[in-house]
Design a protein around this nucleic acid. Structure first.
Lengths: 255, 255
DNA sequence: TAAATGTTGTTATCACAAAAACAACATAGG
DNA sequence: CCTATGTTGTTTTTGTGATAACAACATTTA
């Protein structure tokens, strides 16, 4: 018995994002396994140095995660995990909403030079950010959307978004496999590019190009393992290059 | 211009609970005020050392809170505050739910010596914990509840909870001001204790005693500023003492 | 009873890593 | 040339992790 509980380490890990230190997490988990334990028992059970157990339990008590007995030796009781985590989350959530309102106010008040985004090429990291910016971009389309995509994980959402665009928007799609029926204003070209072309080769590589209204362009590439990277720009050179790329790709693919 | 932004410090504060460091928060807030700024501009605007701005922006980029341009000098754009905070919160929430399930499993599997709570007196800190344990205790009442409370902030919830108890539970209440009509099985004694008694003196002091089924007792005291502290016990001596206290208080108050 | 032993709770101290703050340097662009 | 940028390295600081020593008290053993 009294093994160092290798699983305890992994269990304690997510607690650290909730504001607990390593020791706090370890002791709390140990206390869950032995409610009403003494400091020494917790020391043995958690692997935390005995002398450190006392200040750690003090901190946990101040965070309202444990209650303490008045006996000698002191005994400790954990707050039920659900209550404890709800407690921590409430605190974090309140901070989050406060931050949200204050930061949104700051962001709204800041006068943004409209030229800020012009002539620059932005790198975007993170699947969520890319997704968010991509659909924001598409929903802003007014006259035309030209899109090449060779990926799967956003295909459905992408198609429904494209279909929901106003009828005045001309949509050109180049992709592999496409089964959904579409209205006339949407032109779909299906073609699996050869391996040599580099895009969509093998397992998880994916990529895409989106040009909206001939004024905004976004390029995405990456793999599911290494994550995705995207470029976005309204710079004329950037637009020209990828419009040319689109034209070339489009005509080449019809051969 | 370029004042050190004293408000920035307080605005950046709640971001730290979301896993950002001081610098990360400061730079992000500064970037909200000046989208598309360069590293040097952010240094001047945030007060963060210029050399530190680069690694900080690198970290923010990895956390998907900013996007970077490819120009020279580099320019940076913030992710919209709402998106950014939602992003951070989602990550924390997923950790929280994971922790909740795993910890609940641990807590459920642990065999809890039923005698653990016996004969011990537990200190409980934190308004929420006290509230939670208090109502848990009341809802567990089977035959009797004796309660003295001189506080306001839980009065309503307390009364509704007491009214919702089974008809087989005899309820005795001693408190100040009481207006709600109650069924016969509930006995209410109203009396404002003199200042000298020490309970409920002045502004925000408050206190209370609860005895459930003659087997469990909880005592609460504190002030709204300093917070509350509670004692809970099933120890016979503890119960005896406060039952006696209750009897004394009850008879004295009727004079 | 008195000495030896063990446990508890506390305090002081040291080690270590991350973050914060500063200094130095190479270089690109005006 | 000079300024500003971007990068690198070093120092200081802070919070946490880790070890040792200590007083108070209880228990055991001679």
């Amino acid at each position: 018995m009294a093994e160092p509980v290798p699983s305890g380490g992994s269990i304690a890990e997510p607690l650290k994002s909730l504001g607990l230190t390593k020791y706090e997490a370890l002791v709390y988990v140990a206390l869950l396994k032995a409610s009403g334990a003494t400091a020494t028992e917790l020391h043995e059970l958690s692997g935390v140095p005995r002398a450190s157990v006392y200040p750690v339990l003090e901190r946990l008590s101040q965070k309202h995660l444990v209650s303490v007995s008045n006996t000698s030796p002191k005994r400790f009781n954990p707050v039920k995990p659900d209550d404890a985590i709800d407690l921590l989350m409430r605190s974090i959530e309140s901070d989050a909403t406060r931050a949200k309102t204050e930061l949104s106010r700051v962001y709204a008040q800041a006068e943004r030079p409209a030229r800020g985004d012009q002539e620059l090429i932005w790198s975007i990291h993170g699947d969520d950010q890319i997704r968010s910016r991509l659909f924001e971009l598409l929903r802003g389309a007014r006259s035309s959307v030209q899109i090449i995509f060779y990926w799967d994980h956003l295909k459905e959402e992408l198609i429904t978004t494209l279909l929901s665009l106003a009828a005045t928007v001309r949509v050109d799609i180049i992709t592999d496999r496409f089964t959904t029926p579409v209205p006339d204003r949407i032109h779909v070209t299906v073609r699996t590019p050869p391996e040599s072309h580099g895009i969509a080769t093998g397992k998880c590589m994916a990529g895409g190009v989106v040009i909206v209204d001939g004024k905004q362009a976004m390029v995405v590439m990456g793999s599911k393992e290494e994550g995705f990277t995207a470029l976005y720009s309204e710079a004329s050179g950037f637009i020209r290059f990828f419009t040319m790329y689109w034209n070339f790709f489009s005509s080449w693919i019809r051969t």
